[in-house]
Design a protein around this nucleic acid. Structure first.
Lengths: 374, 374
DNA sequence: GCGAGTTCCGTTAACGTTTACGCTTCCGGA
DNA sequence: TCCGGAAGCGTAAACGTTAACGGAACTCGC
């Protein structure tokens, strides 16, 4: 139970060799014969060696450099993600994390270059939003081969060898949207539209399927239309929706899974449908607020960007510091925002975005130093 | 920017004294004159000294003992809280946390004694559920005076000097419940009942007020009845609800804020009202599942016990390790569970409860040791 | 057979704290 | 005068790891 953990010294002693050799063997450094290395690894495993991170940090003082490759974005979503990453980096006990932001001004523009730049700069880890997974698969592979772990945020990049990904559970959000849509429409008949970014993105097609499946099984009198793909281009979203609104007179509701909810709302307004449609959107940003307050948007599914950022960095750090296990996939539950609890989320959002001085603040509040309490 | 942090040695050098003296001064240890101590503190402040946690841990190897005082509970809620605490304790980088569970078999029975026991045992910190805040105020004060920080979970203990508290935002949950209730009832008239544990508990009265306020302002045709207090006694809940159901023929919905939703549901069933009432409950546990599947319970507000546990421990550890700031208050956003996303939450719940071997697992998956990647 | 270059390995000084120990100085009491 | 003790302070050895240096043994070319 309380037996002291094994150290490099223990391994060295038990082999009749030295700490230096053990260290070299465990780290694949040159200067050890294959035979010795094998023996060291064997003993290390037998003794259940786990490196002491405090000692390691104390000794090497190497700081981990992490590149954060995200788009600027049209809403506050990515600002919140970045602020979550920053907060998490600062709250890490061993103060050895340094984040570098490589923000792409426009979606999908220069992502590859930014990723290549990060690899060239020899960062220790990367957090990335792979807006077009197929384009980034190769560079991500390259990073991984260069021993740079990559964590995807918001969207996955399958078969890219990425270390892990954190996002919102697509089933949970698609289904809750459908369930609410069904309830809110309360027995009405009609059709429901879903706008997505691109059905080629796994997350979006999964959300659509989950929505459709839930609606079909619980509310058979509502019909899910084919997805409207907007590629996050505002004009595209407006145009396609406007067209749809004119064609489908039986349209009862819209579920917007993308950031581009404002053009959809504008289209509804211009078609004089704003108060006749039941609209559920995604995420929370200033432009959306008046629509929620006025109930034009009846609910929005908040994808917790701050939490996504925190978790992505945490995953990366765990891996880098602990030599952790490979390949996690974290699916968060979304939050539901409606008129009633809107203020709670707005307050929180602004706190999170402006929480710069939170951590490093001088300890004024404890009289004298007093601090440690331990 | 990148200047090296100040160390004890720096302070000692700048004062012409020794590391030992500086250390004693900073830790209020005997053996330093008041004058020297003052000078040390002054210089430490000027130089912006912050202790190096890695070095501290490496040197002292003292493990932090944390007492977790929670009730057994009638649902899985407290099991999830405890498992969250355990998970967080294990995921802490410096492996210096040891949790001791002092679980009370029945609610409110022997809480004081358990708290006293923890204090007597000289633990370094306490996580507690103060089921009756007024009774525990004094012992919590005593712990705090004995330099043992106390974090409340789920319910606050105001004016007790506790270090902090983590719980669900009452406004967010009360309001979303009301908003959903209003929407689901869709223009119907009638009255809505709210069951609470005890209006003397801040959280419960706040939830009730938030619910009532939101319902009043957005759905004026619905009337919020006076709260039903059940003290988490199942019979009490059943009896009071049964009575209410018979008296109020205009009853349209029920919002159950406590763990005792099953007796309420039973009462509704026995009064033949199960399919006529719109019922929103709180939390998620096995007995509730069939009701959600059958839509007898239309939605439940999940208070994320696992996350509450994680955060409570994190707060305590931050304070103990970092000598952090005093008095935080963390309010989580609740999750909304309905038929559609029920399975997501159930899967997650069972994962969280059974994730014992997750961390300490031997690293089988990396060929050889290979591990560090750093 | 001698230097130059490898390969493999041991040694040691850091890193910043904590802690135990030891050295002064000063003071009161015998 | 000498001793005991305490107060105030310095010293140094840990803690487990990393990284740089040095040295032995062995090889190769001449």
């Amino acid at each position: 139970m309380g037996k002291p953990p094994t150290t490099l010294r223990d391994i060295a002693l038990s082999l009749g060799t030295s700490i230096g050799t053990v260290h070299r063997a465990l780290h694949d450094n040159p200067g050890v014969s294959a035979a010795t290395k094998a023996r060291v690894l064997q003993v290390a495993r037998n003794l259940g060696y786990r490196p002491n991170l405090a000692a390691r940090y104390l000794s090497s003082k190497k700081t981990l450099r992490i590149s954060v490759n995200t788009p600027q974005g049209t809403t506050s979503f990515w600002d919140e993600v970045r602020s979550g990453i920053r907060d998490q980096a600062e709250s890490i006990l061993l103060e050895n994390v340094e984040v570098e932001f490589r923000t792409c001004p426009t979606l999908g523009e220069g992502e590859e270059e930014a990723l290549e730049a990060a690899i060239r700069d020899q960062v220790d880890g990367i957090v990335i939003f792979p807006s077009s997974p197929q384009k980034l698969r190769a560079p991500i592979r390259r990073a991984t081969r260069a021993n740079i772990p990559v964590v995807c945020v918001a969207t996955d990049a399958p078969q890219s060898g990425r270390l892990g990904m954190v996002g919102i559970d697509t089933l949970a959000s698609g289904s809750i949207a459908a369930d609410l849509m069904g309830r809110f429409l309360n027995g009405k008949e009609g059709s429901v539209a879903v706008t997505v970014f691109d059905m080629d993105i796994t997350e979006h097609s999964e959300k659509y399927s989950a929505f459709r499946a839930t609606l079909e099984s619980f509310y058979p009198n509502l019909q899910t239309l084919k997805p409207v793909e907007d590629q996050d281009i505002e004009k595209e979203a407006y145009r396609k929706c406007r067209k749809l609104f004119e064609e489908r007179s039986d349209l009862a509701g819209v579920y917007v899974t993308t950031e581009a909810s404002v053009p959809v709302l504008q289209a509804a307004k211009d078609a004089n449908l704003l108060d006749r449609l039941t609209i559920i959107t995604t995420d929370l940003f200033p432009d959306l607020v008046p629509y929620i307050r006025s109930s034009a948007v009846i609910a929005t599914i908040y994808q917790r960007p701050h939490a996504q950022g925190e978790l992505a960095l945490r995953m990366l750090h765990e891996f880098l510091a602990e030599g952790g296990r490979r390949s996690h996939q974290v699916a968060l539950a979304p939050h539901l925002v409606m008129r009633g609890n809107l203020d709670f989320f707005l307050r929180r959002q602004s706190q999170e975005l402006s929480a710069k001085e939170k951590r490093r603040a001088p300890r004024e509040n404890n009289a004298e130093y007093a601090g440690d309490f331990a």
